[in-house]
């Protein structure tokens, strides 16, 4: 893998990831993740659900970021994405970024998880634009007001809550575009997303539960083949955003919502 992509996958990437536990903190609070065995199960389930969805969305975003450099390609090859979407935002690349972002919203019923995804998307966008300037990242930034700056559009926009697109683009969308900006393929974007879906949570568990970091590293190594398989599957999805995986994890959804209401929170999510 190229060094540029290693930089993007690195946990020391200054994009705020260290403050997100991927559900491990509320799971630990609930007594559901307590030791290495329960952490391993948690990571495997996270990978198969949220990890797969994130990886597929990141791959789609990467693919679109590569093609959106040329608007002609967008119209010819991907304009069809909008036929089913009422022409929201026009048929340009920026309108399509909004559609892809809405695809993340639709797969993220938990408001707490949407907020966490947008916070991480904003942070990643900042570092990615500084590091690998790319028109796709500019397009994402141009339409990303913060949480409180409610996007006011037509009547339909007013029906939607502040979370839609407001608050910055979703993390997998930015991750895919950043991977493209760093010269990566959709398969590589999916790999970084799938990898991050377990490493961030594992690192949080080490900090929260005082688990042996060597044992946790070994548990991640055991998962490595599964991470690759999820990435391969995610990248092999057809180029139809509506059909991308939408595997839910009701437990993660509930934990994310409970987390926001707990008295003491060390992690954002």
């Amino acid at each position: 893998m190229d060094t540029r992509l290693l930089l993007l996958a690195d946990s020391r990437l200054p994009a705020g990831g260290h403050a997100h536990s991927g559900g491990v903190e509320p799971a630990a609070t609930a007594g559901a993740v307590t030791d290495l065995a329960s952490l391993s199960d948690f990571l495997a389930a996270r990978l198969s659900t949220a990890g797969l969805v994130t990886a597929a969305l990141a791959a789609a975003s990467c693919s679109f970021a590569h093609s959106s450099r040329d608007h002609a390609v967008v119209r010819a090859g991907l304009g069809g994405q909008l036929h089913d979407h009422g022409g929201e935002g026009g048929r340009d690349g920026e309108g399509l970024w909004r559609v892809l972002d809405a695809e993340v919203d639709a797969r993220t019923p938990s408001p707490a998880q949407r907020t966490a995804s947008r916070a991480q998307g904003r942070a990643l966008l900042r570092v990615a634009r500084t590091t690998w300037p790319h028109p796709a990242l500019d397009a994402l930034a141009a339409h990303s007001p913060r949480d409180h700056a409610v996007v006011r559009g037509g009547p339909r926009e007013q029906l939607h809550d502040h979370g839609r697109w407001g608050g910055g683009p979703h993390h997998p969308v930015v991750l895919g575009a950043a991977a493209a900006a760093a010269g990566g393929t959709p398969r590589q974007a999916a790999a970084i997303a799938a990898y991050g879906s377990v490493t961030g949570a594992a690192s949080a568990a080490v900090r929260l539960l005082g688990l042996d970091p060597l044992a946790v590293q070994q548990a991640l190594a055991v998962l490595a083949d599964d991470v690759d398989a999820v990435a391969a599957r995610a990248a092999a999805e057809p180029d139809d955003w509506a059909a991308l995986p939408a595997v839910s994890a009701p437990g993660l959804d509930l934990l994310a919502e409970l987390h926001l209401r707990s008295e003491v929170r060390l992690f954002e999510s």
Binding site: P14, A15, R126
Partner: peptide, 27 residues
């Protein structure tokens, strides 16, 4: 801003969340 058990990381190594909070307040 929550720091994921690493207060120094949030102000030194990975300042993303703090920058975001500062800019949001300014805006």
């Amino acid at each position: 801003v929550r720091t994921g058990c690493c207060p120094h990381t949030a102000i030194r190594d990975d300042i993303a969340a703090n920058l975001d909070a500062v800019e949001s307040l300014e805006e």
